[in-house]
Design a protein around this nucleic acid. Structure first.
Lengths: 142, 142
DNA sequence: GATACATCCTCTAGCCGCTAGAGGTTCAAG
DNA sequence: CTTGAACCTCTAGCGGCTAGAGGATGTATC
């Protein structure tokens, strides 16, 4: 039986985050001591590790919820889990493409700035005038 | 004189967002009609374009605030603006590196899954067991 | 001048995924 | 039996918006 603190250390998840996952129904309600403190078993440790690892790979909590559901039905075909992972891969690739465009533009800004006064600063000039940009970039909320 | 709706269309910023920028002090309080509706001039249009473009390049609202301040002092040396842009470039590069690791891992997951049942699903297996990962990846909050 | 109706106003609350802090209780070691 | 670290609940906040309720204004047309 693990305390929430031990679980926290074992999985690298903050205590508050574990309670948060319980609150939103991602983690089940654990048993309690007489005094009301949470006690976890190994199944719950595995579940939290799964969640944590999925988060590291960038899955949303909603996607993780789906994956956890799927993993409870070992006899169903696994296309669905596969589809979720593919979706995530696609998102990562899109984000990378956007960042690449940003990087190009930022690099250009920084290179062209040769350390004069603000009035002639290339950085500020580029920010003022989008038409100076070579690439399309639609970051915001990515 | 522009209405908020016109400003919204010209800059591609939602009306609510413009009001939000005013609320947090990023946009100045504009003039008003007798009836209390906002009216904007060209200086404000330029300022919002600057903000919008900076957001597209991934700058935080705080960074933009600094950049706007700097751009009001054309005689100061431009190192500071330069530094902010370099910082942003660095962040973008870090994010890209992280995403690259994620992509590798996700690709592997998806490739190894050959469409059996959930019980044998490689996707779920990898998520269950971090030690199967080849790369380090510490996404979460990136 | 009346009417219609698009656009504007303020205000509140919600999104994601946590994180922090106040103020109080429980547990385990010595 | 005392200490003090770790636990508890609850509320509020982060960034950067976004959505909706419920009402006022502005402009074009008749």
């Amino acid at each position: 039986m693990l305390t929430i603190g031990t679980l926290s250390k074992k999985t690298g998840t903050k205590v508050q985050t574990i309670r948060y996952y319980e609150q939103i129904g991602l983690m089940p309600e654990p048993g309690r001591t007489e005094g009301g403190q949470r006690r976890y078993d190994n199944a719950q440790l595995d579940r939290l590790s799964f969640i944590r690892h999925s988060r590291q790979l960038g899955f949303s909590l909603d996607a993780i919820r789906e994956l956890l559901d799927l993993s409870d039905h070992p006899n169903r075909p696994c296309d669905e889990a596969d589809a979720i992972a593919r979706r995530q891969l696609k998102q990562v690739e899109q984000r990378m493409a956007r960042l690449k465009a940003l990087r190009t533009e930022l690099k250009r800004m920084v290179h062209e700035c040769s350390g004069g006064r603000m009035g002639d600063c290339k950085v500020l000039e580029v920010l003022r005038d989008h038409s100076e940009c070579l690439t399309e970039h639609e970051e915001i909320g990515a």
